[in-house]
Design a protein around this nucleic acid. Structure first.
Lengths: 149, 149
DNA sequence: TCGCATTTGCGAACAGGTCTCAATTAGACT
DNA sequence: AGTCTAATTGAGACCTGTTCGCAAATGCGA
């Protein structure tokens, strides 16, 4: 099923703006609303930021895109049928890396068994300290370590 | 070691405002900056919101308090030496429940082994659908399900 | 091709958080 | 106890990310 059909299933009209948003999110893999806007505006001026937000909202409801939070700023949007992955976000350097969702399978099963809670894996962002920053921190006084955001 | 000593260790001055913030965060268990402000203002008027933010920042650096994100709005602060726990946040009803961090132990070990990444368990919030909302959703048309935030 | 509900652009408004700066104050040192 | 000074505070302007209201434009079923 292509995205046009998916939208029609949800009684959502197909517009150039929405098509642009889907294509841009797909192309950028992970992007904030501002990034999507400036990318869209490279080929079509006059598309409004609130239109981007509204498009992302309906596309998210339709299950075509999803978002997660990398860092404290704007959320990051991605195409749902991209291979499932979760994010490791470093609190110190702010960089994030994608990993397969396999490591969280045990977690999902246990949380469901023990609490009846259905984990949204795509939304899962794991914060902590990446390998690089752990190694760097060992060379520095604790007081010299500055956190991102 | 009490919090006064912990602050002095980090060359952070002890002020009535900071004491109020620590006591309030401890009393409320989970609270946003606005909630802390209005709670503090019940006993002492004139404390400023930016002071709350600055206090939370230094207390977080000193390792006394930490925050996590429940929902899309303001982050939620808590005392670190409260028994370690992680949060399940329901995307539909918006409610969150605390669970022991045991279920994520396997995740932490694997992420460290495979990626050298040190998971910040206190910051971990797991989003998804709670038992209640899963059951309710089965009684409704999909289109009737309205998500929180 | 018409009709109309949906969608858009635009600007104002809002929420959460940060910054600047003058006035105050904690705490080290007489 | 009194002095000094860097850290801290209150007040308010400002910034970023997001939502809202409304008139004009438009997708799409009939």
């Amino acid at each position: 099923m292509n995205w046009g059909e998916q939208l029609r299933e949800h009684d959502i009209r197909i517009t150039p703006q929405r098509q642009l948003v889907i294509e841009t999110v797909e192309r950028l893999h992970h992007s904030t609303s501002e990034e999507i806007l400036s990318e869209v505006n490279k080929s079509f001026q006059g598309v409004n930021l609130s239109t981007i937000y509204r498009a992302l909202e309906v596309l998210e409801d339709a299950g075509l895109v999803a978002h997660t939070h990398l860092g404290h700023g704007a959320p990051s949007y991605y195409i749902v049928n991209d291979s499932e992955h979760i994010h490791l976000v470093c609190n110190i350097c702010g960089q994030s890396e994608c990993i397969g969702e396999g490591v969280a399978n045990e977690l999902r099963v246990q949380v469901h068994a023990q609490h009846g809670f259905d984990v949204d894996m795509g939304h899962l962002s794991i914060h902590g300290t990446c390998r690089n920053c752990t190694e760097l921190a060992q060379l520095l006084e604790p007081s010299q370590v500055v956190h991102a955001h």
